[in-house]
């Protein structure tokens, strides 16, 4: 654990293939994915539903082994889940038997950090997501947006160098969703984690991404990679924003159309 609690690691996806057995036949889900995520970069994975973007994230998280290829964090190949890769799930997946603060302390406690220090860490990250006064509540007492804030605080409190986010705002209403995007982008300006962010929302991806990877419809291949040069604190109504949005929409629509055929 780096003492500053800031900064990311590089992720390399090398020749990853993934096939699932379906009705006794091997069905490809991901084909020949090669990708490098720079330290401190926010990379969005975008694609039609079923294209394998969540599968790719699960492989990077270590939840699924690739059929071929490998994933490296800095220079080390991964073999399973690990605390240097924090994960934020769409359904939050908080521990329902623990309070908000206990959820956030979960990682540091496992790492053997002493109790008083754990409480400090929890307080700091709950402050960051604006939930300090809810520390003693249980997850069931929170709204969806608040739960996802806790999940983000829980992932960050463990000081991972990489944060993997699987459609984290997908279950939230439109307004909450934009607020959460703004908070994530604000937090990222402080924490500089390496973030891989899966979404099917083009607007969300253009708002957040340094680079944006569009996958083809199933089986997923890399269709195109866009660098979003909009700087920090983006304006969703700026003309350049809209230009990225419409260009990427055109590419994604082509892929969606292929599924229909």
């Amino acid at each position: 654990m780096s003492p500053a609690g800031v900064g990311g690691a590089r992720v390399r996806v090398e020749g990853v293939h993934k096939a699932f057995a379906l009705d006794g036949r091997s069905t490809p889900a991901l084909v020949d994915i090669n990708l490098e995520v720079q330290a401190g970069e926010l990379l969005c994975l975008l694609g039609p539903s079923g294209c394998g973007k969540s599968t790719l994230l699960n492989i990077v998280a270590g939840f699924l082994p690739p059929t071929r290829g490998r994933v490296l964090v800095d220079a080390t190949p991964i073999t399973g889940p690990g605390p240097e890769r924090g994960v934020v799930f769409q359904e939050y997946v908080l521990f329902p038997w623990l309070t908000v603060a206990q959820n956030v302390e979960f990682g540091p406690r496992l790492a053997g950090v002493e109790a008083a220090r754990c409480r400090e860490i929890a307080a700091r990250y709950l402050d960051m997501v604006g939930l300090r006064e809810h520390a003693t509540k249980f997850p069931v007492q929170l709204s969806g947006g608040m739960k996802q804030r806790v999940a983000i605080a829980r992932a960050l409190a463990n000081n991972p160098s990489i944060v993997l986010m699987d459609e984290p705002f997908g279950a939230l209403d439109a307004q909450t969703r934009e607020v959460m995007q703004e908070e994530l982008s604000r937090i990222q300006r402080v924490e500089h984690k390496t973030i891989v962010f899966v979404t099917h929302s083009i607007r969300e991806a253009v708002y957040l991404a340094d680079r944006l990877v569009v996958l083809t419809s199933a089986p997923g291949r890399i269709r195109e990679i866009f660098s979003i040069k909009l700087g920090e604190a983006r304006d969703r109504f700026a003309p350049e924003f809209t230009r990225y949005e419409s260009e990427i929409t055109r590419v994604v629509k082509e892929e969606v159309a292929k599924v229909r055929e």
Binding site: G82, V87, F106, A111, L164
Partner: peptide
């Protein structure tokens, strides 16, 4: 998913049993 969440926070097999499976 609870097991995945805990594993990605650094839980060992023993941690998973004690801190996730049992509760």
């Amino acid at each position: 998913m609870l097991l995945r969440a805990a594993a990605s926070l650094g839980a060992s097999r023993r941690d998973l049993l004690r801190r996730v499976v049992l509760p």
